[in-house]
Design a protein around this nucleic acid. Structure first.
Lengths: 82, 82
DNA sequence: ACCCATTTGTGCGTATGTATA
DNA sequence: TTATACATACGCACAAATGGG
């Protein structure tokens, strides 16, 4: 369980860790990143805190999300079967 | 108490109502918009839902926030006494 | 068609800390 | 000191979508 510091918001620290993993290729484009409950287990944060991290990552275009499936690194693919 | 519909997320409906009030000049630039608890009373939403509305409005540059004071319509003024 | 597990999305309540007046 | 207001963070619950049996 990765420890977080107390001097900065927990959601921001987790955000930066995930963002760094995307940047350095740990999570390659199209690869599934940990679920909200995965973040919960790895960092000891609450569900709502994990949701906030996901929201921000998505807003900033670092991940895309498929409801019911998970969230994935990088920009969304061009399949839009509407 | 403004009623919200059930077909779309409550936080999004409130977001759009506030955004519309800023766009049409109901809340002019620099004017204080309702607090989270103000939204709670006007729309019957939870504190956390109101917070989410504020977060989005801020992220989208529609408001700025002064902790302890409130949130205000429009872009932040250029006073940054850091 | 059905159940079940996983995952995201939404929404509620609550508590504590910090900043301002 | 008190009141107001935002920021962070927790827990919980339910809905909807997905995929495997």
């Amino acid at each position: 369980m990765t420890e977080l510091r107390a001097d900065r918001p927990r959601w921001r620290q987790v955000y930066e860790i995930i963002a760094a993993r995307i940047a350095d290729g740990t999570y390659r484009r199209g690869v599934r990143i940990p679920s909200v409950r995965g973040l919960q287990e790895e960092f000891g944060i609450a569900v709502t805190t994990g949701q906030k991290v996901m929201d921000r990552l998505r807003d900033d275009g670092l991940i895309y999300t498929e409801p019911g499936l998970g969230s994935f690194a990088g920009p969304p693919p061009d399949d839009d079967p509407s």
